[in-house]
Each structure stands twice: as C-alpha cells, then as structure tokens.
Design a protein around this nucleic acid. Structure first.
Lengths: 343, 343
DNA sequence: CGCCATTGCGACAACGTTGTCATACGCATC
DNA sequence: GATGCGTATGACAACGTTGTCGCAATGGCG
C-alpha cells in the first residue's frame, strides 16, 4: 500500500495542499464546491492524514493519558474499575480523534509524581485524566499542575482539592442505602469503613452517618468496623460484629469486597442471608452478581464519568481554559438478594 | 518550560545535531569522548527527543496496538483478562520505548476486520498484539495479515492458524486438573463446556478427556454439560447434573464463572462443598478467591504471556522477519477449598 | 465609481528529527 | 610518498503536515 499524502489529494482535486488541509481540519473559508471536490478525492484515495506530521507541526500530540494506580498493587477486583473508565474514555477519544495512552503506576506520592512528569515529557501528552484514588492525592495533583498539562480528575467522592473533576454522589447514595436498610426494619445497622487513604471510601462513611441521622437512628461506635477494602478485612470485621452480644441485623460495607468477606463469614457460621442478616456493599463489581446470594450494592457510573471527564478535557484543550467546578454524575442503588426485611 | 530541541543540545555540546542524533539512537562511529559530552548536555538540559519528529522522519509510529474484544460484549469478569495483558505489555513497551494503544472492539468478524484496518491506517501502528478470542478468528487474522502489519497473537489454547503466537498449556493442565480430581477419589467427574466460539475453551474439554483416559476413566456423555461461559449456564448445567439419578461427585467447569454458577446451585440445595461435591474452574479470576468456598482453578500466566508477545513483536519489528512458532508459557493449578476427597 | 472588508485560495516556511552524502583525518599498505 | 580504507563528524535535504502571509475576486457602501 503506497501511503497517500496530502499532496496526492491536492493534485487529484486540483487544489493546493493548504486547501486540503483546510478541508480536513474543518477550517472556514472554503467554498462548498471545493470542499466537495476535496472530500471526493480524499475518499477515493482513502487518504489518512499523517498524525506524526500534524503533531509535529501543530505542537500537539493528540494524546490523552489515563493515569491510575497499579491495580496489582491494590487488589485485582479493582480492575473492573479501570476497564470501565477506559471504555468511557476511548469512546470519546475515538470521536474526537485523540489517542489514549494508559499509564498504571505505583502508589507512593513521590515516585508517582516523578513518573507522571516523565510520562508527560516523554509522550508529550496534551491532557490527562486522573483516576481515583490519585485524583485525591495532593502531591500528584500538584505535580501535574506544575507541568502545566491540563487534566481532569475522576473522583467519585468529590474532591477537597481545587481541580476540574467529575464526581458522583457517593455520600448521598450511601445515605439512601442506609435509609433503604432502615425502611426494611433494620435498627442495628453496622458499617465497615474502607482504607483510610482512600478518600472516596471515607465519604461513604459520612453518607452512612447522614442516613442514620435522617432515619432518626444513632451511630453506635460498636457497630463500626474499620476495614481496609480487602476481603480479609471484611471477614475480620464481620467476625467482630457478629460476636457482639447484640449483633447487627444489617451490615453495610464500604466496598463489595469487604461485603463479600461478610458473606463468607455468614456462610461459615450458617447465618442465612438475607433472612438473618442483610448485607450491602458498594461498587457493583462483577463479583456482586456472582456470589450467592447476589449482593445489594451501589453502581457507580464509571464509564459515564470517564466519558464526561474526557469530553471536558478535550473541551479544555480546545478552549485553552479550565473550569474548576465539580461535575456530578449520580450513582444508583442496586437492590439484589442480600438484603431483606429485618428478622 | 521551554522545550529543548536537538539543536540546543548540539550547541551546548559543540557538535552537530547529527552527532546528537547518533548518540541518542546509540549509533556507532561516535568517539567515547563526544558521546560523553553529548550525554552530559542531554542530561543538564533534560532533553527529550520529540517523538512526533522522529516518527515522521523515520516512518515508524513506535506504537503497538492491543486489540481485544469488547469486554462488555461478553461478560465483565473477563476484564481481569485485559488488565493483566495490558500490564504485561506495558512493562515491555516502557523499556523498549514504545507506546501502547488499546483497542477494544465488537465481536462480529466482518466489523472487526474493518475496524482494525481503520485503526492501523489511522494510527499507523507498527505492530499489533491480538488478544483471545480474536487471535483464533480466521477473518481477523487474515485482515491483519492483509495490512502487512506485524502481529503476535495471545492464544491460550494454542492456535490452528499459522501465526506468531504465545500460548499456554491449556489442554495439558486440564488433564492435570482431572487427574487431581481422580486422585482425590472421584470417579464420576462431570465437565461443563464453554462457549462453542471460544476455541481456547474448547481445548479445555479435550484436556479433560485426556485426563480421564490417563486415569483409566471413561467419558460419560451424561456427565457433560454444555455451557456458554456465563454464570447462568453454569447454574443450568449444575441443576441438570445434580438432578441425575447418579450425580457426579466432582464438576469441572471450563471457566470460573460457570464454576461459580455450580457453587450457587449447591448453596441453594444445601449441598456442602467440598464434602459432598467438588468443584473446579478455570481462569483464576478474582472471583475465585472471593467466593465461599474459594475455588480450585487454573491460573493462566496472562501478564507473562503478554510480556512475551510484546517482546517478540518488538523483535519482529527490529529484525523485520516473523517466526511462526508457538511459544508456550505453562499455567498452574491453584488448589483451594472447593475440591476435596470424594464422599 | 472608488474604496475597503471579506472570502477563497495558494506559495512558502517551519516544526524537530533522521537519512544521505561529503569531508577530514589517521593509519596501514605498496 | 602516494594510495586506499576505516572512523568520526558535519551540511543539507526530506518526512507530511499546519501556520503565516499575500493576492485576487467579490460585494457592500458612500
């Protein structure tokens, strides 16, 4: 296949290369008739602009980076997270003619900051989408800001850092889930908190407290377990909670993995779910549908958030200016079989 | 930040830009002393070659594409699959200075072929890594071959198509798993086959048959369920199998999701695992560790396979020629709690 | 009718590299 | 001491675009 250049198109359409360029880039001041001629030539020759050339000349890379923490560093379940975001980003990138570069990275602030700087310098990214939990780490955000590269954070729990970001109503939806449990008659509702570094997960606990308050229930410190997002921590907390003299009738875990841990312990102890114990999680990872009983949880619209983030980033790239506000895409309660009427 | 070019480095090192280029690209015929001078200049100026420029001039994109089927088309559990491959690829790309472009796509042969052609033309990929099951679809492979773009397939079950590929010992390991079940005393071992289009999954069934033969057991057609890789199909097959007058004492499913389905049914029917029924899966998806009881399964070294695929692709890109042989990376049996002595 | 603004288009330089070729030098060979 | 060859280096073109500028044609307005 001989590579066809802008020159070939120009010759065939009997115009200058500049005019072809104008048509390709949808620039104004081209008459409708020439535009048609050029487009005809383009499609018969199957012309594709050489990205490298346009990148070189226009000093833009048409590259967007997705930076996220290394999923293997955490727990593999979070992989679904990344895939969903990727899908959302890709769909937007495709239509806007950007390419997506993915960049998983370690977890220590300092190292990541250096890594990102290297990435930007090397690949000359036009913009960055920053995945959670990185989007809530001051050092990372600062590092990117220092490079002057436009970026948008995806930060479900909202962000304390001033940055353009897309969030979801984590806190509110947790209040809703709590209210839902209360509406099933539960009065002793336990909560298992997540990893303290994970800001997004922290806001879930706040939502739980909001929910209790809304329903006129009081927070019982004995009914709060502190987990770290892992299944094991879910199991540990579940054991402690179920060993209480007055155990909870419902347990709401800050993520699905910990909820899965609770369910495992229940299985071990032959505690029927949801008849004897209701369990709710958060994230709607694939696991949630797969375990028995299927898990009531919260579904975050990650792909959609990513889409919005990408669209917004691209808008920033074109307009040149950033809006710092927080866009919120609502999450949804997913009611499955692990929750039911209080015993 | 003022962008520093090869010119700046040349000026500072008091050499020509061509010499800098030579140093950067590790070309021969540069004296050790100049090389040091240039390298010094490079690091004090923090020079990064402009990728677009070198791509333009050298007519290479330094881009590798990862093409895989859209995970949402199948089932989300497969997302772990993709992430693992990505990690393997990225680690190699990084050290070889290539960038990775990911490209999920639909599932119909014809559409994908067109999509891939577009991708190659648009992004001018230097090479492609083709993920399963695409690596076993003749139309896709042919389409890529037609473009003349070098590619390496990742195809766990081996490949009937002549193509450079990295595989794993799917079949052998399934024989091993079967032998393991037999060694626990199981004589009535059932198998649940996977989606018929999924070549990799088909070879698992062959391995099962090998295993039976090796242990002197006969294949009982009544003990073969035909699933389609989904949890639901696993449940369906499990019901049929467990309804038999002489139900199996062990069920080996061609993937973890279906095995999870079996476990769900067992839970429903209060059939204790592994005391009354042993269950084995394949894939070692995150779920396998999370469900109760944790699932005995097979772990495919996907990241490692991807690494090898990438390394091989890059070697092909440099040498210009392709080796058609199939590289095999062994899988491992993962024994967990869902299998035990036959009742 | 003359003037200026607008529209449509092309010539040409420039982006930052790498490839090609020429050149200068040192050194062994005859 | 001329010849040839290998090594180290540089001058310059070229890659395929887009940006800048200039120029011609058109049209509205005084």
């Amino acid at each position: 296949m001989p590579k066809v250049t802008i020159e070939d198109v120009a010759t065939r359409a009997r115009v200058s290369i500049k005019t072809v360029s104008r048509v390709v880039n949808n620039e104004p001041n081209v008459s409708e008739s020439t535009r048609r001629k050029v487009n005809a030539a383009i499609s018969t020759l199957n012309y594709r602009p050489n990205q490298s050339a346009r990148r070189l000349k226009s000093q833009r890379s048409f590259l967007i980076g997705l930076v996220y923490d290394d999923p293997s560093a955490y727990e593999i379940p979070s992989s679904g997270y990344v895939i969903n975001m990727q899908q959302g980003l890709l769909s937007v990138c495709k239509e806007a003619n950007y390419d997506l570069l993915i960049h998983p990275c370690g977890f220590s602030d300092r190292r990541i900051a250096a890594e990102i700087k290297g990435l930007i310098e090397h690949s000359r990214l036009d913009g960055i989408v920053l995945a959670p939990p990185l989007s809530n780490m001051r050092g990372i955000v600062k590092a990117i800001e220092n490079t002057g590269t436009p970026f948008v954070g995806i930060s479900p729990g909202g962000s304390t850092l001033r940055q353009p970001a897309v969030a979801t109503n984590d806190r509110e939806i947790c209040a809703e889930m709590t209210a839902h449990l209360a509406s099933l008659g539960h009065r002793r509702i336990a909560f298992i908190t997540g990893h303290p570094d994970h800001k997004a997960v922290a806001s879930r606990f706040l939502g739980f407290q909001d929910g209790l308050r809304d329903c006129g229930l009081k927070l019982d410190a004995a009914l709060v377990g502190s987990g770290d997002n892992s299944i094991e921590s879910g199991e540990r907390c579940a054991r402690t909670l179920l060993d209480l003299a007055r155990p909870p009738t419902a347990i709401f875990a800050a993520n699905d993995d910990m909820a899965a841990g609770v369910i495992r312990v229940a299985h071990e102890r032959r505690i029927r779910i949801p008849e004897r114990l209701s369990v709710a999680g958060f994230d709607d990872v694939p696991l949630a549908r797969q375990i028995y009983p299927s898990l009531t949880t919260v579904n975050q619209p990650l792909a959609k958030m990513a889409e919005h983030a990408a669209r917004r980033l691209i808008r920033m790239l074109h307009s040149g200016e950033a809006s710092l506000d927080l866009e919120v895409i609502p999450s949804a309660l997913v009611l499955r079989d692990s929750t039911g009427l209080a015993p």
